[in-house]
Design a binder for these strands. Structure first.
Length: 321
DNA sequence: GCATGTCAAGTTGTG
DNA sequence: CACAACTTGACATGC
């Protein structure tokens, strides 16, 4: 069974995640900072509950949780721990309830730390900040029951093989709760599937295959071959594969490839229709894009086994099981 | 009220 | 050399 996933935000549903700038927060005294940040975290924890409910309601099977769910958590000056927040205990409780919810609905949750989190840098301060960020995200992942924390290879620094050596060294040293959730993803200018496959194999971590990045930054593998290889990396670990797709806003001729509002269904690799996997949909129209693609591909709405067997009128009856 | 410029962080490629 | 591109919106500020 194929499930499509929504990334971080909603276009139409009135669910918003709040944020704060460090510049503003720094102007407050510590108590003021914790009060403000606590308010944001509480709202965001509640918004996450609403998000999982909404994703379920829409028949979507996966949700990527945005990294700044707890705003500025790892900031060097205004960072904090949940216990320090006025409503820290309540926030923890709400986040734990997300885990129960996602299990009931069989929604898969994941994290995708942004471009500042990378383990190949020769600069120790960059690596230290990245490790701190991973500590934060795994704390959240454990609380809410997310099984994937997906990062890119990072920079090349003029020498890919030594950058990858540093990456291997860092990942090997990660504590198990992080390592067991960590995945690598091919990116659109530096690391291809071909580059990362041996690294993932060596580290026993899976490879998230982004087909759009593969098209921007190709290697000698075809889409079918890359699909198969990445599938294997998950199956070896007895885990559901996790892929990404997006469509370019301005077609394939322009240099930069910003994401389009929707996915062009012709960009969806045919071979993906046959597999058991999670496909994160990276499109600006958010849940509208997921639903549109789901419809165009004739996928049934995602619903938990044993949950409301009522609304099962989606035409196709022989592709099941 | 509402428009608008500004956000912590790294790295690469473009213009 | 500065700026955009990467999940891209939300917020504080100033009219």
């Amino acid at each position: 069974m194929l499930r499509l996933g929504l990334c971080c935000l909603f276009k139409e549903a009135p669910i918003r995640f709040r944020s704060a700038t460090a510049k503003y927060v720094k102007k407050l005294d510590r108590a003021g900072q914790l009060a403000r940040l606590g308010e944001l975290c509480l709202d965001n924890a509640l918004a996450l509950v609403a998000a999982v409910e909404e994703v379920h309601r829409l028949g979507i099977g996966a949700f990527r949780v945005s990294s700044p769910l707890l705003p500025l958590y790892t900031h060097p000056e205004v960072g904090y721990r949940l216990e320090e927040l006025p409503s820290g205990e309540e926030i923890t409780k709400i986040l734990s309830s997300v885990k129960a919810l996602k299990e009931r609905y069989q929604i898969r949750l994941s994290f995708h730390p942004d471009q500042f989190t990378l383990l190949s840098s020769p600069r120790p301060e960059v690596t230290a900040a990245s490790l701190k960020e991973l500590d934060y995200q795994v704390m959240l992942a454990v609380l809410i029951g997310a099984d994937v924390i997906n990062i890119h290879g990072g920079g090349v620094y003029g020498d890919k093989s030594s950058a990858l050596l540093r990456l291997v060294e860092q990942v090997s040293a990660l504590p198990d709760p992080i390592r067991s959730r960590l995945s690598l993803e091919n990116d659109d200018h530096s690391y291809t599937v071909r580059d990362l496959l041996p690294v993932c194999e060596k580290l026993s971590i899976p490879l998230v295959y982004d087909v759009h990045h593969h098209r921007c930054n190709p290697d000698d593998l075809t889409i079918s071959e890359a699909t198969e290889a990445c599938m294997q990396s998950w199956r070896q670990l007895e885990r559901e594969p996790h892929f990404h797709i997006s469509s370019p806003k301005f077609g394939w001729q322009g240099k930069p490839k910003p994401h389009a509002d929707f996915i062009d269904k012709d960009d969806f690799p045919e071979e993906w229709l046959q597999i058991d996997a999670t496909i994160d949909i990276e499109a600006k129209a958010k849940e509208l894009a997921v639903l549109k693609l789901q419809k165009e591909l004739a996928l049934p709405p995602w619903c938990a086994a044993g949950d409301s067997p009522v609304q099962r009128h989606s035409a196709k009856s022989e592709s099941g099981s």
